[in-house]
Amino acid sequence: MSYNILLCGVGGQGTVLASKLLAAAAEKKGETVHSAETIGMAQRGGPVTSHVRIGKDAYSPLIPKGKADLIIAFEPSEAVRNLDFLKKGGAVITNEICLKPVTESLNPTGYDGKEMIDYLTKIIDNLAVINADELCKELGSSKFFNVAVLGVAKGAGFLPFSEEDLLTTIETSVKANFVEVNKKAFLHGVEVGNGFGKK
């Protein structure tokens, strides 16, 4: 089996933890896994990506363009920015809430994320658009989006792991007092994800 997942967003959104959970889940299944973070100027509002590569034949540290099975985007324009990594027929999950560039106040571009979602809707068959605020409403904080979105990916049938794999990974990888809320976030995500399913 070979499976490539690209997570993308803006610094501070929690993509790194999500990629570590995916890597740990793959390891638990006995898969060979590699990942790479392109963190760059993350702390200062720059785009970030995590490349998770599952399978023995993955040698390149980054996913080659056109080889990602799944893109999980924490921000709609970041989904579009990284779209050339997606393989034909690949799946995309994206948050629909946009994060304006930190320079927006100085150089307004009028960016609001809508045209990104419109474009993705037009061209991606396996697309799940979710609203992070709605998804996280009952969890009390949008901080849990990074784990909830993995649930969505699982529920929509985009992840090659069982629910069990991921839940035990959360138990062993997340700080003790955050395990329960993260499991709840994940399971809530699965429920939402079930509504999408593979086309």
């Binding site: 200062r44 720059g46 324009s77 970041e78 579009v80 920015r81 320079t103 927006e104 045209e115």
Partner: peptide, 9 residues
């Protein structure tokens, strides 16, 4: 559509 630039600040 062109994604917005996100220069570091």
């Amino acid at each position: 559509p062109a994604p917005p630039m996100r220069p570091p600040v």
